[in-house]
Amino acid sequence: MITKISEIAIFADIPEIDAPHIISKLKERKFKKNHVLMFENDLSEDVYIIRSGMLKIYRIHEGKEIVLSISMPGDILGEVEALSNDSHRISSIEALENVSVWHMTKQDFLQIVDQYPSVLRKAYMVLVERTRMLNRLIRYLTFYDVRTKAANLLVDLYYNFGKPDGDNFKIDLKINQSLLANMLGVTRESISKTLGDFQNEGLIDIREKYFYLLDKSQLEAICSETEEVPALRKWYNV
């Protein structure tokens, strides 16, 4: 649970003495799992800061969903629209679990930006990181087969949510196969078969929706020609 302004990347450089001023502009809201906070192309000027829980950013075309990213505590949503002249939402956002957020109006957010220029610089850095993530997603969707896509995504998830677990490496994030399929633009049957192959080859194990990389080096070997700079697998370096 995010409790301090300093834990929010975009506000990290605001002096601690000014934190109460920022907090006074925030209102806490809670959303249940599967609640859609916003739909693509909706007109809305709300800005959200995630305090707890996980959300997916996605688009739907002809009934097919593609997940663009996953947002976690400390992330901010809606700031791009607030900083632009167009209030149409860029994408849809849905709670993957029960979520708590801080909510603020566009006017309050812009006032903070005017008062603390570092917020605008941080917002730009966040936008660059999101663009980098989308660039990687386009590469996955366009150039690779399902096996290479899945291996890359598992390694990405480890770089962002992983931790050593004995002799193995755990992705400390519960995630189901349908979400993985929608992150890669493939069918659930395809991802299920591929993950089954990885399990049979001793590359991974799945326990209670947690993924364990049993042979991380071999998974990375599958990805060897798809990411020349492994550090760029980190989704956010703000």
Score class of each variant (00 low, 15 high):
1 M>I: 01
4 K>I: 02
47 V>M: 04
212 Y>F: 13
143 F>C: 10
96 L>W: 05
225 E>Y: 14
214 L>T: 07
165 D>Y: 15
166 G>T: 05
184 L>F: 14
237 N>A: 12
184 L>I: 13
40 E>R: 06
131 T>Q: 13
54 M>P: 01
130 R>G: 03
212 Y>K: 08
201 E>Q: 14
18 D>F: 00
229 V>N: 12
91 S>P: 00
52 S>T: 12
116 Y>R: 08
43 L>E: 00
167 D>R: 15
85 N>I: 05
234 K>N: 08
48 Y>M: 10
92 S>L: 05
132 R>T: 14
78 G>I: 04
215 D>E: 11
81 E>P: 01
192 S>E: 13
10 I>E: 03
64 K>G: 05
144 Y>F: 14
173 L>Y: 12
71 S>Y: 04
108 D>V: 02
89 R>I: 00
192 S>W: 14
135 N>G: 13
138 I>K: 14
56 K>Q: 04
60 I>P: 06
108 D>E: 13
106 K>Q: 15
204 I>F: 12
51 R>C: 12
185 G>K: 02
70 I>C: 03
10 I>L: 08
181 A>E: 06
96 L>R: 07
80 V>P: 00
21 H>K: 11
49 I>T: 10
235 W>V: 09
71 S>W: 01
16 E>L: 06
67 V>P: 11
196 G>R: 03
39 F>S: 00
86 D>F: 01
173 L>D: 09
22 I>W: 01
228 E>G: 06
198 F>W: 04
47 V>A: 12
110 L>Y: 00
44 S>A: 13
61 H>P: 01
175 I>C: 03
60 I>T: 15
136 R>V: 03
82 A>Y: 00
55 L>Q: 05
118 S>T: 15
232 L>T: 15
87 S>T: 02
118 S>I: 12
39 F>R: 00
200 N>E: 14
155 V>P: 01
157 L>T: 03
128 V>C: 12
224 S>W: 00
119 V>P: 09
2 I>D: 10
150 A>S: 13
123 A>G: 09
40 E>F: 02
67 V>W: 13
80 V>C: 00
5 I>M: 07
214 L>R: 11
191 I>V: 15
55 L>F: 03
48 Y>L: 14
24 S>M: 02
144 Y>C: 06
18 D>Y: 01
20 P>R: 10
84 S>K: 11
123 A>M: 09
97 E>F: 03
34 N>S: 13
80 V>K: 05
30 K>F: 09
44 S>W: 00
44 S>V: 00
40 E>Q: 14
234 K>F: 07
19 A>N: 11
160 N>A: 10
199 Q>C: 04
23 I>N: 09
124 Y>P: 02
185 G>T: 06
110 L>V: 05
208 E>Y: 10
174 K>Y: 06
52 S>Y: 04
